[in-house]
Design a protein around this nucleic acid. Structure first.
Lengths: 149, 149
DNA sequence: AAGAATTATCTTAGTCACTAAGATAATTAT
DNA sequence: ATAATTATCTTAGTGACTAAGATAATTCTT
């Protein structure tokens, strides 16, 4: 069997994950965010509005840390706090997508375009293989995460 | 063309990168490390002995932060400080690979095995495609990192 | 319907890792 | 020899985190 090739690819994917982390942290600093703020900012683009509690459980942060996170974003006018009409305890955090995008785009536009160029360099059948791999790898990563959290 | 599929895969890989980050941070906490200590611990396994300065430029930390990092690892007896005989200013950090491995393995063994199982579920020709993708994606990520650092 | 328990968020106190700037000590250049 | 440079460490201050408790709204119990 091709045990070596398997291990090689596994290590490659590990290296990629680390490089990705480094890249994001570096961009975060350049964009004037702490690494963690930047990390969670993407959440709002992905998920839209969230309550503080939802954000806490998604991020794994304590409620106090989330309060601080929201305060920092609110100061920069990237999100708004809105009280839920149905449940007055809840605070809904409404991101200003346009403003957030405007901050991120300069850094990611080229990267995303190049990423898509790389993907586009594969045939449609090959893309299916990439997709299959990512779906499996994502599931395993999330399982492992859930196992330890 | 299949623009949608391309974007789908790009987003999938993005999601994977984020999940990977979350997983590593969670494991770090479980293993009794701060997320950053855990992140840099892997460095020693990969690179072996390093000087404090080399570590600083690899991690992007200031020299003071590196001093603290080494102190914490040294307290846990995971690394040793050795003075360079040729250049008395330099401090070589010698990792105790066995000890570090012993700390990491319980958390990563299953994950790595399952990762390899996923890879092994592809044919050899398909593996070549995965490898090709990772090599390109890694290069792009590192380029982007270098561009902003 | 009133009181108790729960839930959601915020506040406070304390900790830890970081940066920036300067100190120390060894090496290299003039 | 002296000056400049290099490598690491130290110190002071900052920022984001946790844990625990406060506050306020909702839901459950009887």
């Amino acid at each position: 069997m091709c045990t070596e090739k398997i291990t090689e690819i596994r290590k490659l994917s590990q290296k990629y994950a680390y490089a990705s982390l480094q890249m994001h942290e570096t961009i975060a600093r350049k964009a004037g965010f702490s690494a963690t703020d930047h990390k969670y900012l993407g959440f709002f683009l992905q998920k839209g509005s969230l309550t503080a509690g939802e954000l806490a459980s998604l991020t794994g942060l304590t409620s106090g840390a989330v309060t601080g996170l929201i305060n920092r974003f609110e100061r920069k006018k990237l999100v708004k706090r809105v009280h839920d009409h149905h449940d007055g305890r809840k605070v809904i955090i409404e991101p200003d997508r346009t403003k957030i995008m405007a901050l991120m785009t300069p850094f990611y536009q080229t990267f995303q375009q190049e990423s898509e160029n790389i993907i586009a360099s594969f045939s449609e059948a090959e893309m299916e293989i990439l997709k299959a791999y990512f779906l499996k790898a994502l599931a395993l990563t999330q399982e492992t995460y859930n196992q330890f959290k």
